[in-house]
Amino acid sequence: MNFASDNVVGASAPILEAIVRHNAGALPAYGADPLTLGLTPRFREVFEHGDLAVFPVATGTASNALALAAMVPPFGLCLCHEEAHVMEDECGAPEFYTHGAKLQGLPGTGSKIDPAALAAWLAALPRHVKQMPPRALSLSQLTESGQAYGLDEIARLSDIAHRHGLSVHMDGARFANAVAALGCSPAEMTWKAGVDILSFGASKNGALAAEVILVFRADLAETLEYRRKRAGHLLSKGRFLAAQLDAYLAGDHWLANARHANRMAARLAEGLGALPGVRLAWPVGGNEVFPILPAALDRALRQGGALYYDWTSRSLPPGEAVAEGEALVRLITAFSTGADEVDAFLDLARQASRRAAA
């Protein structure tokens, strides 16, 4: 019953099989192999964008940090939510690769940036050489609270950013889960809504280690070949990244994986929400569930072998709070999470609730 993260599970069978299948023989190195070269037309088809630039890398940290480095100069600001992964969980990699640019966190319910708050912040910013100028907006999809920005929200935020001279980056570590949840196309969620660069995640959704920087604007793509190499993220045996991504896209495997993970999260949320004293901090927007549990239930679940993380209450909805004797936690389902695992967790929770009521 491990719901700690979608990073803790292995890779999906089609992706592992693709790695083995493409292992034999000699192929050109550093991304010059046919499989890597074939990724560009594949992604252009998926995203309905004929000029899309495609840069595979091995980690989400590299994808985010290098993307932001192409958008923000050393003297600039990148705006993001105050809980964003780029802000709190990447050990300063964006600042390192931008050579000193700064991240500015903004508050918002559900770890979402509110368009009105973004507009007000930008309007109030002093225009002076002593003030670092904002150059990019980074949106997490899903957010750190498991919420999906709607297409209208992305479009509004992008429009505000562009009117103030900012480029728009999307951290799509769980992009597939958001697409599956909203039922939209990848194009609708990105460039058609104003996104300039997407960090397209695969590692959390079935890949072994594969992410892609997808650039929808040619002027932002021109330095990334050099930035990726200089940063040590151009793999010599790039075919193994390409093999993963090729299998990930084949037959919409990426969306099938995400839909399954989302269904398991919905099953988990429904079961937990029926228990006395349990409520969801935010609606389920993908494959993450954030219940507020009675402390006794939290202890019983952990003692019963369930694994998950405590979570922060900083972006709870207005009027919501974690009271004394309660715990806010995060549960994540993955492409490989089985209904039996979810049901075992829910059975454990029901037994603990009955004992507490007796």
Rank of each mutant, 00 (worst) to 15 (best):
Arg259Gln: 09
Arg302Ile: 12
Asn262His: 09
Arg267Phe: 06
Phe290Ser: 03
Ala321Ile: 09
Trp282Arg: 11
Asp310Gly: 10
Glu324Ile: 15
Pro317Gly: 09
Met264Ala: 13
Gln303Asp: 15
Ser313Met: 00
Ala327His: 04
Ala274Lys: 14
Trp311Asp: 03
Pro291Ser: 07
Leu272Trp: 05
Trp282Lys: 10
Asn257Gln: 08
Val322Thr: 00
Tyr308Trp: 15
Gly304Arg: 04
Asn257Cys: 10
Val289Asn: 03
Trp254Thr: 06
His253Leu: 15
Asp298Leu: 04
Asp310Tyr: 08
Glu270His: 15
Val322Glu: 00
His260Val: 03
Glu270Gly: 14
Pro294Leu: 00
Leu328Ser: 01
Glu288His: 14
Leu328Asp: 00
Ala258Ser: 08
Val329Tyr: 05
Glu270Asn: 11
Trp282Met: 12
Gly285Glu: 06
Arg330Tyr: 08
Gly285Thr: 13
Ser315His: 10
Phe290Met: 11
Arg302Tyr: 08
Pro283Trp: 11
Pro276Ala: 07
Ala250Asp: 07
Ala296Lys: 01
Leu328Glu: 02
Ala323Asp: 10
Ala300Trp: 10
Pro317Ser: 12
Ala295Thr: 02
Ala306Lys: 04
Glu320Ser: 12
Gly285Val: 12
Arg302Gly: 07
Ala323Val: 10
Leu293Met: 03
Thr312Leu: 05
Gly305His: 08
Val322Ile: 01
Pro294Gly: 00
Leu301Ala: 13
Glu324Phe: 15
Trp254Ser: 07
Ala327Tyr: 04
Gly305Tyr: 07
Met264Phe: 08
Met264Lys: 12
Leu307Ile: 15
Val322Met: 01
Leu255Tyr: 10
Leu328Ile: 02
Asp252Ser: 11
His253Tyr: 13
Gly325Val: 02
Tyr308Arg: 13
Leu301Ser: 10
Glu326Phe: 00
Val289His: 04
Thr312Tyr: 03
Arg314Cys: 06
Asp252Lys: 12
Arg267Gln: 09
Gly319Asn: 14
Gln303Ser: 15
Arg314Lys: 06
His260Lys: 09
Met264Gln: 14
Tyr308Glu: 12
Trp254Leu: 11
Glu326Ala: 00
Ala256Gln: 12
Ile292Pro: 00
His253Cys: 12
Glu288Gly: 07
Trp311Arg: 01
Asn257Pro: 05
Pro291Ile: 04
Trp282His: 15
Ala274Gly: 10
Thr312Cys: 08
Pro283Leu: 13
Leu331Trp: 06
Leu316Met: 04
Leu316Ala: 02
Leu331Asn: 06
Gly285His: 10
Glu326Asn: 03
Ala274Ser: 13
Arg330Ala: 11
Ala274Gln: 14
Leu297Thr: 02
Leu275Cys: 12
Asp310Cys: 06
Leu328Ala: 03
Trp282Ile: 11
Arg267Asp: 07
Glu326Gly: 00
Ala258Asp: 05
Ala321Ser: 15
Ala296Pro: 01
His260Pro: 04
Tyr309Thr: 12
Arg330Leu: 15
Asp310Val: 04
Leu272Pro: 03
His260Ile: 05
Ala261Ile: 09
Arg259Ala: 06
Asn257Lys: 06
Arg330Pro: 02
Ala281Ser: 09
Gln303Leu: 14
Ala250Tyr: 09
Ala321Tyr: 08
Gly273Met: 12
Gly319Glu: 06
